Simulated assay, not measured.
Amino acid sequence: MTTPYTITRVGDAYLVSTHHVNWVLVEDGHDLTLIDGGYPGNVVDVERSVREIGHQMGDIRAILLTHAHVDHLGGAARIAAAHGIDAYTGAVEVPHARRDYLQQLSPAQIPFVLWRRGAVGWVLDITRLGGTDRTGLAQVESYDAARLDLPGAPVAVPTPGHTDGHTAYAIPGSGVLVSGDAVITGHAVSRLHGPQLIVRPFSHDRGATTDALDVIAEVDAGTLFPGHGSVWTGSMRDAAAQAAATAGFWRP
């Protein structure tokens, strides 16, 4: 089963957007870096998107994770195993990715979001995509440099809060910030559009998530590639300010 998606290219970076989650491909000649990988059920979609931009799975030199929630790690873990691709994330996030512990909305916490508009359909959709899967990625390692020696020369931007080890990635040559869930631009359970914080129950530490906006504001980029929602163009200072204004948002 496949999921519809759109691909937006900015420089050598490609945002692949589905209704519920995104991933990013960064091109450097014949080589690629994959950032995140969607849900377990998105594996065929990731593979299809790689082919659609003119590459093969063997061109992926590494996978970077913004964080280890199932909608970002699930597909990436299966791709890493199937194709023998190395995976990396921040040192603090490594044990989370290996499932030494889990900082993720549990089934018992689902009622905290079910009252929101669109939530029932969201639950049904993500269950189909493998959203209840708790499998980790045993072979993930930490990146050990601010500028990673990977296609596209991504730069790690530590943005803890959504998870303790959340990392965004700047792609300097393309003027793009891959923000993961530190800043999103839309979600099935949010009626907001544009830069925003993800709804409160999805983040482990809401205060730290808000504080991380100060880090995002300093990134020199003109395009935001979020973990959820569509591409956004503008300064990261403006994106952070707009997201900060949603920090207290809680009405359906």
Rank of each mutant, 00 (worst) to 15 (best):
P226K: 02
G130Y: 03
A91T: 12
V43R: 14
V178K: 12
P154L: 02
V50L: 04
F225H: 06
P201Y: 07
H187P: 04
G84N: 08
T167G: 04
E93G: 08
T3P: 03
I198N: 10
G186I: 06
A182S: 15
F249L: 09
R237W: 01
P40M: 10
A146K: 13
V155L: 09
L105Y: 02
A97L: 10
G11V: 09
R134S: 12
T163Y: 02
A81E: 15
V94P: 02
G38E: 04
Y88R: 06
V199N: 08
R116L: 13
F225N: 00
G29A: 09
A156H: 00
Q196K: 07
G121E: 05
H204V: 11
R9S: 13
I171D: 06
R237K: 12
D86T: 10
H166D: 11
A138H: 10
P195S: 09
A97R: 02
N42S: 12
G175E: 04
E47W: 00
H30F: 04
A243T: 07
F225T: 03
R98H: 07
A212R: 04
G180L: 07
V10R: 14
Q242E: 12
A146L: 11
A168Y: 06
A146Y: 01
D31I: 06
H166S: 13
T2N: 12
Y169W: 07
G229P: 05
D59R: 05
Y143R: 00
R237Q: 11
A217E: 01
A68G: 15
V113A: 08
A108Q: 10
A82H: 11
Q104G: 10
D214N: 15
A153Y: 00
A119T: 09
G173H: 09
T135D: 14
E47H: 05
A80T: 01
Y169Q: 00
G37A: 04
I198S: 12
R9F: 03
V120I: 15
T223W: 03
R206T: 15
E27W: 00
G11R: 03
P201S: 09
V21M: 01
M1L: 11
G54Q: 06
P226Q: 03
A247C: 11
M57G: 00
Y143N: 05
D28F: 00
A77P: 00
A138K: 13
D214Y: 03
H96Q: 10
A217T: 01
W23T: 08
G222C: 07
P252K: 10
Q139Y: 02
P151H: 06
S190W: 00
G248Q: 12
A81K: 12
H83Q: 08
D238V: 08
T163Q: 11
H20V: 15
I184Y: 11
S230N: 12
S142Q: 12
V70S: 05
V231R: 07
F112M: 14
R251F: 09
Y88H: 05
S203K: 09
T135C: 04
A108R: 14
V219Q: 01
